[in-house]
Simulated scan of single mutants.
Amino acid sequence: MKAGDELPTLTIPLTRTLIVAGALASRDYQDVHHDAEAARAKGSPEIFMNILTTNGLVGRYITDHFGPRCTLRKVAIRLGAPNYPGDTMVLSGTITEVTDGAAVVRVVGANGIGHHVTGTVTVGLPEGTV
């Protein structure tokens, strides 16, 4: 593993169920995450994914790649284009730094209208991995 290595992509279908379930699981009861009429009344064409669900999906992407013994030390993300139902988000990552016991990964999640999420994740690696 070295800086510049790319992680395999992860394609996530953005279903209404995923968006609503993610909001409920993270106790985010804002109506724009589950009520299409309320979302439209507030200027959005449809319900959209909350940041906590996105954060969880980014964490899943990293731990799926590095394995169950890794630890997420820092997740720093920024949202961009909303994730609406019926679209697809593709997560990709590039290792930017590898130190003793850790790696930093630049993560991008893109959907049909642009970058939904960008950021970096610092992941602690099990002894002997690096």
Rank of each mutant, 00 (worst) to 15 (best):
M1C: 04
M1G: 09
K2F: 15
K2Y: 15
D5V: 03
E6S: 14
L7N: 06
L7D: 12
P8F: 07
T9M: 07
T9F: 05
T11A: 09
T11S: 14
I12A: 06
T15F: 14
T15A: 13
T15Q: 07
R16H: 14
T17L: 01
L18I: 13
A21N: 13
A21W: 13
G22F: 10
A23I: 09
A23G: 15
L24M: 06
L24V: 11
A25K: 14
R27K: 14
D28S: 08
D28M: 12
Q30S: 12
Q30D: 10
H33I: 01
H34I: 01
D35Y: 04
D35K: 02
D35Q: 04
D35C: 04
E37V: 08
E37R: 09
A38S: 09
A39M: 11
R40Y: 13
R40W: 12
A41V: 02
A41F: 09
G43T: 11
G43Y: 13
G43I: 07
I47V: 15
N50W: 02
I51K: 12
I51G: 11
I51N: 07
L52Q: 04
L52D: 00
T53K: 05
T53Y: 10
N55Q: 02
G56W: 11
V58R: 00
Y61F: 15
D64A: 11
H65W: 12
F66L: 05
G67C: 06
G67F: 15
P68F: 08
R69Q: 13
C70I: 00
C70F: 07
C70Y: 02
L72V: 12
L72Y: 10
R73T: 05
K74D: 10
V75R: 01
A76D: 03
R78K: 07
L79Q: 14
G80N: 04
A81I: 06
A81D: 07
A81P: 08
P82Y: 06
P82I: 02
P82C: 08
N83P: 09
N83E: 05
Y84L: 06
Y84Q: 03
P85T: 12
P85W: 07
G86K: 03
T88G: 11
M89S: 15
V90H: 05
V90F: 08
S92G: 15
G93E: 01
G93C: 05
G93T: 08
T94Q: 06
T94I: 10
D100Q: 04
G101K: 03
V104H: 02
R106M: 01
R106C: 01
V107H: 09
V107T: 10
V107K: 07
V108F: 07
A110S: 13
G114C: 05
G114F: 09
G114D: 03
H115Q: 03
H116L: 02
V117L: 02
T118Q: 06
T120I: 00
V121W: 00
T122A: 02
G124S: 08
L125T: 13
L125R: 09
G128S: 10
V130R: 01
V130Q: 01
